[in-house]
Amino acid sequence: MSLPTAECILKIKDGDTAAFRELFYTYKDALFCYACKLSRSSELAEEAVQEVFMKVWINRQQLNPDLSIQSYLYTATRHCIFNILKKAALDASLRQAIFYHQPTAANTTDDEIRNAELQRVKTKVLDLLPPQRKLIFCLSRIDGLSHEEIAQKLGISKSTVKDQIVKASRFLKQELHTHHDIIIPMLVLTMGVTTTSH
C-alpha cells in the first residue's frame, strides 16, 4: 500500500472514514513495532497505537497536509508510550509508598489471608481518587515536592495544592476505615497526616 498523500490527509480532515482506514492500515504495524521497542510490552504498544489513531481522528481538523504524517504519528506514539509508562510507574510507586510499609506480622495463614484482602481493598480505594487529586498527592508523597513546587508545576495555587492533599488523605483514611480499622494507624503514619476536626 502506498503512503497516504496530502490529498488523503485532506479527506481525513473532511471526515472521510475510508481515507482514515487507509492511514491506519498503512502505519499500524510499523507503529506497533516501534511502540513495542520503546515499552517492551505488546499490550502497552497496542494501547498506545489505538490511542494515537483515536486522537488523530478526534483532532483531524488540526492535521496539516503539508507536514509529514509519518513523523507526526511516530512522535505521537513516542509521547503516548512515555505517558503510559510514567503513569504506570507513578501508580506503582504510590501504592508501594502508601500501602506496603506495614509492620512485620507473624507468618500464619490467617495473617496472609488478611493481608491479601487488605491489599486488594487498599489498591481499589486508591484508584477512586480523582486524577488531578491523585497526581497532586503523588507529587507530594512520592516525588517529595513542596506545595509551592507543585503549584508552579501544575499552574495552580498553593492553597489548591494543600486543599487537594488534605482531601485525598482524608478520603483514603475514611474509605479504608469502612473496610478495616487496622489500616488507619498504618495509613496515618505512612502519610504523615495529623487528624484534625473541621
Score class of each variant (00 low, 15 high):
Ala92Thr: 11
Asp110Asn: 07
Ala92Met: 09
Cys80Asn: 02
Phe99Ser: 02
Ala76Pro: 01
Ile69Leu: 12
Ser68Glu: 05
Leu118Gly: 04
Tyr74Asp: 02
Gln70Ala: 11
Leu118Arg: 10
Lys173Asp: 13
Ile150Cys: 02
Leu135Tyr: 06
Leu129Met: 04
Leu139Pro: 00
Glu112Asp: 09
Asp127Val: 07
Met186Trp: 11
Glu117Arg: 08
Arg78Val: 01
Thr75Lys: 07
Arg114Met: 06
Ala88Arg: 15
His147Ile: 07
Leu139His: 10
Ser71Met: 10
Lys167Gly: 02
Ser93Leu: 14
Tyr74Glu: 02
Thr123Pro: 03
Phe82Asp: 14
Asp143Cys: 07
Ala92Gly: 06
Val161Arg: 01
Leu67Phe: 12
Asn107Thr: 08
Asn83Gly: 06
Pro103Gln: 08
Ala105Val: 14
Leu154Cys: 06
Lys153Ala: 14
Asp66Cys: 14
Ile182Thr: 11
Lys153Ile: 10
Asn115Ser: 13
Ala97Asn: 10
Val166Ala: 12
Asn107Gln: 14
Lys173Ser: 12
Gln174Trp: 03
Gly192Ala: 07
Leu154Arg: 03
Gln96Lys: 15
Tyr74Trp: 05
Ile182Gln: 10
His101Ala: 15
Val121Pro: 02
Lys167Arg: 08
Val193Glu: 14
Gln96Pro: 02
Thr194Phe: 15
Gln102Trp: 03
His147Val: 06
Glu175Val: 06
Ala106Ser: 13
Leu118Pro: 01
Ser169Thr: 07
Lys122Ala: 11
Leu63Gly: 04
Ile184Thr: 10
Gln119Pro: 02
Ile69Trp: 04
Ile136Asp: 00
Ile81Asn: 00
Ser159Ala: 15
Lys162Met: 12
Arg120Pro: 01
Ile136Tyr: 04
Ala116Ile: 06
Tyr74Gly: 00
Leu118Cys: 05
Ser68Val: 07
Ala97Arg: 13
Ile182Asn: 05
Arg60Ser: 04
Lys122Ile: 08
Met191Ile: 09
Gly155Ser: 05
His177Val: 10
Gln96Glu: 15
Ala168Asp: 01
Thr194Ala: 12
Phe171Gln: 07
Pro185Cys: 08
Ser71Gly: 02
Asp91Arg: 10
Lys86Cys: 05
Ala97His: 08
Ile81His: 00
Asn115Thr: 11
Lys158Ser: 12
Ser169His: 03
Asp143Tyr: 06
Pro185Val: 08
Gln174Arg: 15
His180Ala: 09
Leu172His: 01
Ile182Cys: 12
Thr108Met: 04
Cys138Asp: 04
Lys124Asn: 07
His147Gln: 11
His79Ser: 13
Gln61Met: 10
Gln152Tyr: 04
Ile184Pro: 01
His177Gln: 15
Ala168Ser: 12
Ala106Asp: 13
Lys167His: 06
Leu135Ser: 03
Val121Ile: 14
Gly155Thr: 08
Leu94Gly: 02
Thr77Tyr: 00
Arg120Asp: 13
Ser93His: 08
Leu94Glu: 04
Ile156Tyr: 01
Thr108Phe: 09
Ser146Arg: 05
Cys138Ala: 13
Gln119Ile: 08
Ser159His: 08
Cys80Gly: 01
Asp181Cys: 13
Ala105Arg: 15
His180Gln: 09
Ile84Thr: 05
His177Asp: 14
Gln62Cys: 08
Ile81Lys: 00
Phe99Tyr: 09
Asn107His: 11
Thr77Arg: 00
Cys138Thr: 09
Ile69Cys: 02
Lys162Arg: 11
Arg133Ser: 13
Gln164Pro: 02
Asp66Asn: 09
Glu149Lys: 10
Leu126His: 01
Gln70Pro: 00
Asp127Ile: 04
Thr108Leu: 03
Ile183Phe: 05
